[in-house]
Simulated scan of single mutants.
Amino acid sequence: MSKFTAANVPEHVAIIMDGNGRWANSRGLPRTMGHRKGVEAVREAVRTAGEIGIRYLTLFAFSSENWRRPEAEVSDLMGLLKAFIRRDLAELHTQNVRVRVIGDRKNLRGDVLPLLLEAEDTTRGNTGVTLVIAFNYGSRDEMTRAMQSLALDVAQGRLAPEQITSETISSRMDTAGIPDPDLILRTSGEERLSNFLLWQAAYAELIFVSELWPDFTREVFLAALEKYGRRERRFGGLSQPQTLAVGS
């Protein structure tokens, strides 16, 4: 197995995990089988991130729009999430992974929220990779809730309008305390953000890969990171070249 060495690894990588259904359909399988195969890709991505020194890995697990999918598919996705937490939480904890969940937590069904809270509480003291699970998440909804919070503070006299800055807004986002993503990666060949981290993506590098999410291997991840390493990040100013290499 190749060893990834980096002079400048992205601190925060966010991934839109797309293509589970198409992976299954192309093989004549139920869509649920694509989601199940996708869980294996999640495990591989978390392991790879930890090995090469990525500090934050955000995975778009379930959007606020996904509730519109067929009830059977939604139920299967919920079951997979719960199975992942129940089966993998101990291993994540052993690997020093910290779990954090972003998204609207109101009105979540059944025992999903307690399990998410358990994952956060169990791993709160860990200092390795922070695995950010975007669940029941939509960026416009996140921004709306942040604006409502700020508006309430202004209305009640706790905050003056001129005190609202980009930093103040960021502090009300679900991602408060998490650095903005350096890289947003999407699988399946689609080239859009789909209501994911719109505020936080202001200066992120975007990379789109053709592989469907169940086929997202360590090698695909490393190749995307090498591509990121060749980018020049300017942030509106002078370039900041990256240096990434894969060695044997």
Rank of each mutant, 00 (worst) to 15 (best):
N195T: 10
S194L: 10
M143E: 02
R145W: 03
A202F: 05
R69K: 03
R145C: 04
V209C: 14
R47L: 11
E91V: 15
Q163D: 14
G28D: 02
L131W: 03
F62Q: 04
M143S: 01
R234T: 06
S63W: 07
S210H: 15
I102E: 11
L197I: 06
R27M: 04
A176I: 02
L197W: 07
W199I: 05
L131H: 06
G236S: 01
G247E: 15
M147C: 14
D104M: 08
S2E: 13
S26V: 07
Y56V: 00
D182R: 00
T127H: 11
T165W: 10
S210C: 12
G110L: 05
A176R: 14
T175M: 14
P70L: 06
V112Q: 07
N20P: 04
D88E: 15
S149T: 13
E226K: 14
R230N: 13
V13K: 01
G110E: 10
N136W: 06
S188M: 02
N96R: 12
Y137S: 06
R43V: 12
T243S: 10
G157D: 08
V154M: 09
L183R: 05
I54C: 06
D215G: 02
S239A: 15
W213I: 08
T94M: 10
A14W: 02
L152P: 00
V46H: 02
F196C: 01
S248M: 08
L57Y: 00
G236F: 03
D76F: 15
A119Q: 07
Y228W: 13
F60M: 07
P179Y: 01
M147N: 09
N195F: 11
E73C: 01
R233Y: 08
G177H: 00
Y203V: 00
D88C: 04
N195D: 14
A134W: 07
L152V: 13
A245T: 14
A14Q: 03
G53L: 00
R98F: 12
A49W: 01
V154D: 05
R124C: 06
L198W: 08
R27L: 09
R47A: 10
S210M: 10
N195L: 06
V9A: 06
G19C: 04
M1W: 03
T32W: 09
R27H: 11
I207S: 14
L92V: 07
R55W: 01
G138Q: 06
R68N: 14
S166L: 15
S139H: 05
L131M: 05
L198N: 05
L116S: 09
S2R: 12
P30R: 00
